[in-house]
Simulated scan of single mutants.
Amino acid sequence: MKNYKKDFSDKTSHSSSSKLNVFTRKRIWQRVLIALFLSAGIIFAQKAGWLDQFSRQLTQQHMNWSNNSDVIAYLKKIVANNQLTKTSPHCLVYVINNDNGQETVRVEVREQHNSVCTNTRKDFPLLFTFEINRIQKTVQIDKGSPNHFYPIQ
């Protein structure tokens, strides 16, 4: 009798550990698959540009559009993120034109030349212009087509 009980208990514990082992493997595979699908989704969203648009919208919502310093800081991020020029960021000058409290403001981006920012040109060339609508919180650019503004992609 004792041998029978001992054998029976050994078989019961073995089968329950086997079920636990199968359950654990199944959970691990589920988590791996979920991680792979989430990673693929994030990579797709990045390639499609959705993450950039989402971060740009968050930045626009939390920015004070009537503060010129905030607007210039935001434009510097746009120039860097979209690689709008090959000129080094410390060699760019942002000039705000006709800021008399109106809803639309134009910001010229010019290339500076001095002992640090050397180039063959001695003037203060205009690279492109941003048009800022403070009420609608939009930014447009005229790069490649002077005075014809279009939204930044």
Rank of each mutant, 00 (worst) to 15 (best):
K2L: 08
L127Q: 03
R25Y: 15
R106L: 09
N119S: 15
K143P: 00
Y150A: 14
Y150W: 15
D10N: 12
T12R: 08
L51P: 00
T85G: 01
R110L: 02
R121P: 05
A48I: 01
K6N: 13
I141V: 06
H90Q: 15
L33C: 08
K47F: 08
D10K: 15
N147T: 06
G144T: 01
Q53W: 08
F23A: 10
D7I: 13
T12E: 07
R25I: 11
Q136N: 10
K77C: 08
K47A: 11
F23N: 13
F130A: 00
Y74T: 04
Q46Y: 06
K26G: 11
G41L: 02
I28L: 12
D123V: 00
S39E: 04
V107I: 08
R27P: 02
F37S: 10
H113F: 11
T104W: 15
N119H: 13
S15V: 07
D52H: 13
Q60F: 09
K76L: 02
N67K: 09
Q46A: 14
R110S: 02
A35H: 02
T129D: 07
F128H: 01
D10F: 05
V105S: 03
S13K: 12
Q83V: 06
Q112G: 06
D7T: 09
I34S: 14
N67R: 04
N147M: 15
Q57S: 07
V95P: 04
K122D: 11
G144V: 06
R106F: 10
Q46K: 09
S66R: 12
E111Q: 11
Q61R: 12
F124M: 09
Y94W: 04
Q30H: 11
T104D: 13
Q102S: 10
T24L: 12
A45Y: 00
Q60L: 12
Y4S: 12
R25H: 12
N97D: 13
K19Y: 11
K6R: 09
D99F: 04
F37E: 11
S13N: 13
L51C: 03
Q46W: 08
Q30K: 08
S17W: 07
N133G: 00
I72V: 03
F130S: 00
P146S: 06
Q112V: 10
S15R: 12
I78T: 03
F37A: 13
Q153N: 13
I72F: 02
I42P: 01
Q153G: 15
R106D: 13
R106E: 11
